[in-house]
């Protein structure tokens, strides 16, 4: 069991590096570029649509092939979300995330990859984001929701 955890973690480490390199190469790690992509009415930079396109085509084909397997290589099951209905949590959460993303040009992945490149700004963002994530989870647990 312990060996399996070490193997899974090693895979996760490599995957994290590849993901981070993708964020850097594509320019997603730069909040100014994200804001230029979101600024449809201004001097629009459409290149991030190609990031999304490249990622979706690759993942879409890859997932299809992977799901022919009965199970992942290092794990007993594929852990996929089972919820199907569009609920108010999904809608309100996505609106709040969109607001934060639009204000800062940062979402969780690029913010983490920018940690060693940026200065105080990125620390402020990551600290506040962690407060948001773990504060939310703490409150949810205290309220006893599932």
């Amino acid at each position: 069991m312990f060996r399996k955890i070490i193997k899974q973690s090693f895979v996760a480490l490599i995957v994290g590096v590849v993901f981070g390199l993708g964020l850097i190469v594509s320019g997603m790690v730069n909040p100014a570029k994200i804001l230029a992509f979101l600024d449809v009415a201004g001097d629009w930079d459409p290149s991030l649509a190609f990031v999304m396109g490249g990622a979706l085509i690759t993942t879409g084909i890859g997932y299809r092939l992977i799901f022919f397997r009965k199970r992942p290589v290092l794990s007993p099951d594929f852990l996929l979300p089972v919820k199907k209905q569009i609920d108010s949590k999904l809608v309100i959460g996505s609106v709040l995330f969109g607001l934060g993303w639009g204000i800062t040009g940062l979402c969780p992945g690029p913010a983490l990859t920018a940690l060693t490149i940026g200065s105080t700004e990125i620390y402020v963002f990551l600290f506040s984001m962690s407060v948001g994530i773990f504060g939310f989870k703490f409150v949810k647990q205290c309220l006893g929701h599932s």
């Binding site: 895979v11 996760a12 490249g54 397997r69 852990l79």
Partner: peptide, 22 residues
């Protein structure tokens, strides 16, 4: 670079699903 970076992100997503099922 946009397309290439996107493909790298996709490869990472595939790797985590193929090996860890996540």
């Amino acid at each position: 670079p946009a397309l290439g970076g996107g493909i790298l992100i996709g490869i990472a997503a595939i790797g985590l699903m193929l090996f860890n099922g996540r």
